[in-house]
């Protein structure tokens, strides 16, 4: 007997599960962003610290991540059109772009740490490392999930899972959209 089965044909279980999962994730990042924003109002001097971030790398990474969201949508579209090989291709590009994002992020960390900008240097850098680090872990998690689905797609198994990982990947992207201006672009001297 199949145990878990929607009795009435409503929203699929996994889709509900992913949305509830994202709901709980949003409040974690929301809490962190709220703390950062509150502190930021009290510390206008953080603008000077933010000037030391590599804004151009961050900008490139923003483009990389946005593009990966696009390829994720294309992969999803291919699955809908039953073009699994196309989906494998686009999901593969998404994974590569995710890896590219992590490489750039790693380069930034390397650059900052070798310039003495450690998490303990000031509260701004504490937030910078905590928020980008947590986000980075989510990218890693998303890449692992994408990899599993990619493996499945190649064998033609569980193509519907692309939607779950897709929703999650867009969420990771959206978090970055918040982090980038708050951490990199906040102008010197201004409140925000």
């Amino acid at each position: 007997m199949k145990i878990a089965e929607a009795n009435e044909n409503q929203v699929p279980l996994w889709r509900l599960g992913v949305w509830w999962f994202l709901g709980s994730e949003i409040v974690v990042f929301g809490g962190l962003l709220a703390c950062y924003t509150l502190y930021r109002f009290h510390h206008p001097e953080w603008g000077m610290e933010a000037a030391h971030t590599l804004s151009w790398v961050g900008a490139i990474n923003t483009v990389v991540l946005l593009t990966s969201s696009l390829t994720m949508i294309l992969a999803h579209e291919r699955v809908e059109q039953c073009d699994l090989s196309g989906a494998v291709k686009f999901l593969g590009i998404t994974i590569l772009l995710g890896l590219l994002f992590l490489s750039f992020k790693g380069y930034e960390y390397h650059h900052e740490i070798s310039n003495g900008l450690l998490p303990s240097k000031s509260l701004f850098w504490s937030f910078y490392y905590l928020m980008t680090g947590l986000h980075g872990l989510h990218v890693v998690g998303g890449l692992i999930a994408n990899g599993v689905v990619w493996q499945g797609l190649k064998k033609g198994k569980n193509p519907h899972r692309i939607e779950s990982v897709g929703i999650y990947w867009h969420f990771v992207d959206v978090v970055w959209i918040y982090l980038f201006p708050l951490l990199y672009l906040a102008s010197p001297g201004g409140a925000l």
């Binding site: 409040v27 974690v28 929301g30 809490g31 998490p119 905590l130």
Partner: peptide
């Protein structure tokens, strides 16, 4: 639970850091 615990999880990360 789901909508109240998030900020504390963020706080726990901060405390641990």
């Amino acid at each position: 639970f789901m909508f109240s615990v998030g900020p504390l999880i963020a706080g726990a990360f901060m405390l641990l850091a």
